[in-house]
Each structure stands twice: as structure tokens, then as C-alpha cells.
Design a protein around this nucleic acid. Structure first.
Length: 478
RNA sequence: CGGGGCGUAGCGCAGCUUGGUUAGCGCGCCUGCUUUGGGAGCAGGAGGCCGGCGGUUCGAAUCCGCCCGCCCCGACCA
């Protein structure tokens, strides 16, 4: 059989993940602990995700800007909960230019502190509102345990920061951007996600309410794929951001912030990958169609390549991303395996027999046998083929999630269920931290989502039995 | 920070216990020939401050000390 088998994802998912990411050429570890080199194949996916998000940010009225990587340490300390949340993960610069700095600089773990302290100067009147800005950049969080794409000391992301005159408007903004994340996750990354609200213990340090989208990975663990925060007036008060209303009253502004990172790429790997490697959704695939020429002699080679290049050109003309793998030092079988590992949605094989018959062999990564198709039909039908591949990945992932979503009404069901099967467990929760902590202590699962808007009191709490619970979704998470 | 492990060619490793002439193996890489429809074969070749510093010794990858780095488990993860 084939060589260089990947670890079995069903037996050792973490080993499978790291091998796929490395061998597909997405990323590798770099020199400093916990840092990562994003290689072209992985960065190419990130570029597609960036574009999908950025287009939607613009359509919803936002503009990009850029704040610096460093700011004075003292700035952070103005919002008590915020500084407490971040202080363990800060990278702090104490020296520059060969001398000790008068005041240390922090490398941003997120930019709320700097941005709100700056917004204070930009906002005077209700006429300056709303402020709808976003920035693309990197942040640093000194993580103890890191994983490629999922948790690295430095990572790439975007962070949106908006300021509004009313709580209602800010709240709407936070939910609107959550919806943008959900749309990108589902329609672009083909990852079905649950949109919800975080519990008090899981929310962002400094936020009034944190919203999240959560996906379910193939090993039964949940992954937070994006968060959007309604900040209330917390940062406005900490950094004294006020405006004069049309009524002449001075008020603090209401804020939001929202972020998504290249962790999404890790989510794609863990949602769609299989024992052969990656399966990349066509919308973010750096290569959507790979053409493998097959030949023996030089004459065959030039005849086959001529057709291969023609097909490539007409597909490229449709706006598709196509690669002809004309490397002469690898045989076809090697290329088949390699492009499957790299998750290219559609492969076209062309040999001398196909050239003679004006056909190609078409192979879908998502499964199914090889199919002989007339060349013209393959070219004309490719866009539709990729749309189906995109949909198939989503449908597969949704089916998996549905099959791994369970309900529990008693504590035994919840605890034993999480421990035995993983996946998502839905059960009523009274809202008290003690009940939440008990589940986490017993199962290592956390509340991933609560309903977007608080529910009317319902069934008794699965943990303590007290009435007035709302529906919580539990899972072990990354 | 606590517990455990590891630093030898691009990658993965052996050698170290019991010091000894030129430090090996697999993969990868380079050249040539034969191959090419599911991970090619043969032949030749290149590539090493053996993590660093110091010590013991006629002689150190190997023994001793110190240092540095990385990995795994735990604590942590807004």
C-alpha cells in the first residue's frame, strides 16, 4: 500500500492534526517557543478568509485603520477586569536601543486599551458617532501550551472596535458582526456553527456580554471560531470617552469589539480533514483544480501538456485557481497522494488515451470514484463541480454535528455523556457559577454557548435542580 | 513554576553503558540511466564546530560540572 501514512485521526487526533498541517505545507514551528511560520499554502487560505471577512466588514460600513503594536504598560491597568484577564499572558518590553526603558511597553494582546484611549480624543459630539473601525494585525499572548494555527504566541487576526451613542445600537452592532462571522464560517469555510452568548466565566475580560460562534471538530471537541463583544460603557468609562448629545448632555459612549483569527484555518483542518489529509472548501482553496499529466515519452509529454495547459487556461479564464503539476521528477501516483493530502477539491488526470478520446479523468477529493468526462463538459461544468464540493463539505460537517449533539436533563446524563462520547451536550443550567464549575471539574467541559437572548426561565437545572434554567451547550473545547 | 524526556546531516534516528585512527543508518537532496494511469529502481555524489562553555585525559559525541534550548504531563487559556 501507500507509504508515509498519516497518523489515524480516530486514534490520535492531535498527532494527525500536526502531521497534516506540516506535510500539507501549511505551517511549521519556528525558533522561538510557541511561534509559527505560516507557509504559502496555509497563508493562502488565510488570505481568502481575510478577503471574505474584509469584504463583509466594508459592506456593513466599516473602515480599516492601524494602531501600533506597542503601548505603555500603564494604559492597560485602567480597566481592572481587563488587566487582570490579560496580565498572565503579556509580553513586556523593558529595553530598547540598549537602555532600560523608563516605562515598559506591552506588546498588544488586543488593542482595546490603546484604541479607547485614542478614541477619547476623536469623539466629542454625537455627530462623531458611530465610529466603525477595524484593523488587521498581529497580537501576542504568552501562551503556555501552543498548537499550530489554534493557539500560537503570536497570531494574525482582525479586531473591530466601534463606538456608539446608544446601548441598543452597540448591541445591534455586536450581533450584526457575529452574524458576519457565522456567514463566513458556514458559507465560506463550510463549518456549521452555533451562535450564542458566553457565560460570565467565559466572557471577555472587560465586556458586558460576549457572543461567540462555536464549531464542532472531528474529535468531538468544540472550537470557538469568532467572538463579538458588547462592551457596554466599560472601556468608555475607563478611558473617559464621552460625547455631547443633541440635548446638550455629556454621556459615555457604548462600545463593541469583535475578532477572528487564523485559528479559523485550524478549524477548517479539524472540521473537514480525513485519513488522507486535508479537504479544503473550494472558496478558500489556494488550488481548486489540479491537473496531473500522465505520459511516457517526450512526445506524449508535450501532447498531454498542451491539452493540460489549454484546460488550465480556460478554467483560469473562469476565475478558477488551477495548477498543472508538470514536475518531471515525480510520478503520477505520488502526485495523486500529495494533492489529496493537500486537500485540493478536484483533480483532473490527462493521459495519452484521454487526449485521443477528447476526455479527462475527473476525481473529487470528497469521495467517489474516478470518472471519465468529455473535456468540454469538464471545463464547462467545473464551476458547478466546485459549488457542489463546497456544499458537500458543509453537509458532511452538519451531519456530523447533528449526530454528535445530545441532550441531557439530569446531572448523571450530562456528566457521563460528556465523558463517554464527547460532542455537544445541551442541558438546562440555572446560571450559577457553582453549578458550572462542578461540571467543568467533573468533565473538563465548559459552557460553549447560551442562547443569544436570555430565555424565559424553563426546566430545572441539570446540575442542581433549581428552577429557572436556560439552555446551555456544553463541550470540551480547544 | 513542579514532574518526566530530548539536543548527533534538511527530517527521523543509532552510536555513549565499557573514551581510541575516517561518526553511521533511513528518508530527503544533487548527477546519470531506466521509469511514469495510485507514493519508482539502480549506480554515483554532496552534506556534521555530535546544543554551548569549562573540566578530567596522551586522546571526549562518549566521563564530570555549569549553562542554553525544545518537547510531553500539570497549573493557565479573557
Amino acid at each position: 500500500m501507500s507509504k508515509n501514512q498519516l497518523p489515524d485521526p480516530n486514534r490520535d487526533f492531535p498527532a494527525w492534526y500536526i502531521e497534516v498541517v506540516k506535510r500539507a505545507g501549511m505551517a511549521e514551528h519556528s525558533l522561538a517557543k510557541g511561534t509559527m511560520v505560516a507557509k504559502p499554502y496555509g497563508y493562502g487560505m488565510w488570505e481568502r478568509v481575510q478577503r471574505a471577512l474584509d469584504d463583509r466588514f466594508k459592506l456593513t460600513g466599516h473602515e480599516n485603520l492601524y494602531f501600533p503594536l506597542f503601548f505603555p504598560e500603564s494604559l492597560l491597568s485602567k480597566e481592572a477586569e481587563h488587566v487582570e484577564g490579560f496580565s498572565p499572558e503579556l509580553a513586556i518590553i523593558t529595553h530598547g536601543g540598549g537602555v532600560e526603558l523608563e516605562e515598559p511597553l506591552v506588546v498588544r494582546p488586543t488593542s482595546e486599551a490603546l484604541i479607547w484611549s485614542t478614541y477619547a480624543n476623536w469623539i466629542q459630539s454625537y455627530r462623531d458617532l458611530p465610529l466603525l473601525y477595524n484593523q488587521w494585525g498581529n497580537v501576542v499572548r504568552w501562551e503556555l501550551r501552543t498548537r499550530l494555527f489554534l493557539r500560537t504566541s503570536e497570531f494574525l487576526w482582525q479586531e473591530g472596535h466601534t463606538a456608539h451613542a446608544t446601548a441598543e445600537e452597540a448591541h445591534r452592532e455586536a450581533l450584526q458582526m457575529l452574524e458576519v462571522y457565522k456567514e463566513v464560517a458556514e458559507e465560506v469555510l463550510a463549518i456549521p456553527v452555533i451562535a450564542g452568548r458566553k457565560s460570565e466565566s467565559e466572557k471577555f475580560a472587560g465586556a458586558a456580554t460576549t457572543f461567540t460562534i462555536e464549531g464542532l471538530m472531528r474529535d468531538g471537541r468544540a472550537l470557538q471560531c469568532g467572538t463579538s463583544h458588547f462592551l457596554g460603557q466599560n472601556f468608555a468609562k475607563a478611558y473617559d470617552v464621552t460625547f455631547l448629545g443633541s440635548d446638550g448632555e455629556r454621556r459615555h459612549v457604548w462600545g463593541t469589539s469583535w475578532g477572528a483569527s487564523w485559528r479559523l484555518i485550524g478549524g477548517v483542518v479539524m472540521t473537514h480533514g480525513d485519513e488522507r489529509g486535508l479537504r479544503i472548501p473550494p472558496k478558500i482553496a489556494p488550488v481548486q483544480v489540479v491537473i496531473i499529466p500522465i505520459y511516457r515519452s517526450d512526445e506524449e509529454r508535450s501532447a498531454v501538456l498542451e491539452v493540460a495547459h489549454k484546460i488550465r487556461d480556460s478554467l483560469t479564464g473562469q476565475g478558477l485557481r488551477v495548477r498543472v503539476d508538470d514536475r518531471d521528477h515525480h510520478r503520477p501516483g505520488f502526485k495523486f497522494s500529495e494533492w489529496e493530502l493537500k486537500g485540493v477539491p478536484v483533480r483532473i488526470e490527462i493521459g495519452p488515451k484521454d487526449v485521443a478520446a477528447h476526455q479527462v479523468v475527473l476525481v473529487r477529493r470528497a469521495g467517489g470514484a474516478k470518472e471519465q468526462v468529455a473535456t468540454s463538459a469538464a471545463v464547462d461544468g467545473m464551476a458547478g463541480e466546485l459549488e457542489r464540493a463546497q456544499q458537500d463539505l458543509y453537509d458532511d460537517a452538519l451531519e456530523y454535528r447533528n449526530a454528535h449533539t445530545h441532550t441531557a436533563s439530569t446531572y448523571d446524563e450530562l456528566r457521563d455523556g460528556i465523558t463517554a462520547t464527547g460532542g455537544l451536550w445541551v442541558g438546562p443550567w440555572c446560571g450559577r457559577g457553582t453549578c458550572e464549575e462542578r461540571v467543568t471539574a467533573d468533565t473538563k467541559a465548559t459552557i460553549r454557548t447560551l442562547p443569544l437572548t436570555p430565555e424565559d426561565p424553563g426546566a430545572p437545572c441539570a446540575v442542581c435542580g433549581q428552577k429557572g434554567a436556560e439552555t446551555a451547550t456544553w463541550a470540551r473545547a480547544y
